[in-house]
C-alpha cells in the first residue's frame, strides 16, 4: 500500500502570501545544512587529530600540546571556524527546540535570550582567546610549555 500526496506544497506553502522582507527561517534552514557539512569535516578532523592520531590521545592533551597547535595560523583558523559554526548551529537548534516545546511566552522569551547571550559570550570569548593567546607566557614553568618556547 502506498500513500500519494498530490501537489505536496499546495495546502501549506513555505511562506504566507504577502509576507515581505528576507526569509530568515529559510536562511536558517540553509545555514543548518551548510554549516552541518562543514562541521562534520572540522569536528571529525578535530577528534581524529587530537584523540586518535596524536600518540597518547586524551592523555597528551595539555597546555604544551594545545599551545603548540594554537601557535599555528592553520589551527587557529580551524578552531575559530569550528567555534563560530558549532555555536551558531547548536544555538539555532536549541532555538528550534525551545520554540517547539516552550509554550509560555515569558519563559520562551527568557530561554531564547539565554541561548542568544550564551552564544554571543562564547563566540567573543573564544575568538579573542584564539588570537591573543601567548603559547610561551612570561615566567611560566618551561616544562609545561610547548617545546619551541625553550629556544626563545
Amino acid at each position: 500500500m502506498t500513500a500519494t500526496i498530490e501537489n505536496p506544497n499546495y495546502a501549506y506553502p513555505a511562506r504566507s502570501a504577502g509576507r515581505r522582507g528576507p526569509n530568515l527561517e529559510k536562511a536558517g534552514w540553509i545555514f543548518m545544512r551548510a554549516s552541518g557539512v562543514v562541521l562534520v569535516v572540522l569536528i571529525f578532523g578535530h577528534l581524529a587529530f587530537n584523540l586518535l592520531w596524536t600518540p597518547g590521545g586524551i592523555h597528551a592533551v595539555d597546555f604544551g600540546f594545545v599551545g603548540g597547535k594554537l601557535a599555528q595560523p592553520f589551527w587557529q583558523w580551524w578552531d575559530v571556524l569550528m567555534l563560530w559554526l558549532a555555536i551558531l548551529h547548536g544555538s539555532n537548534g536549541m532555538r528550534t527546540i525551545v520554540n517547539d516545546y516552550v509554550h509560555k511566552p515569558t519563559i520562551r522569551t527568557v530561554a531564547l535570550w539565554a541561548i542568544g547571550i550564551a552564544a554571543a559570550v562564547l563566540i567573543i570569548l573564544g575568538t579573542l582567546i584564539t588570537f591573543t593567546f601567548n603559547p610561551c607566557p612570561e615566567g611560566a614553568d618551561l616544562s609545561l610549555l610547548p617545546s619551541f618556547c625553550a629556544e626563545l
Binding site: 501537489n7 506544497n9 506553502p13
Partner: peptide, 14 residues
Amino acid sequence: MSETSSSLTLPDPS
C-alpha cells in the same frame, strides 16, 4: 508559488 505540478509517492508510513 503554490502552483506545483509534482506529486510525491511515498511508501505506507503506518
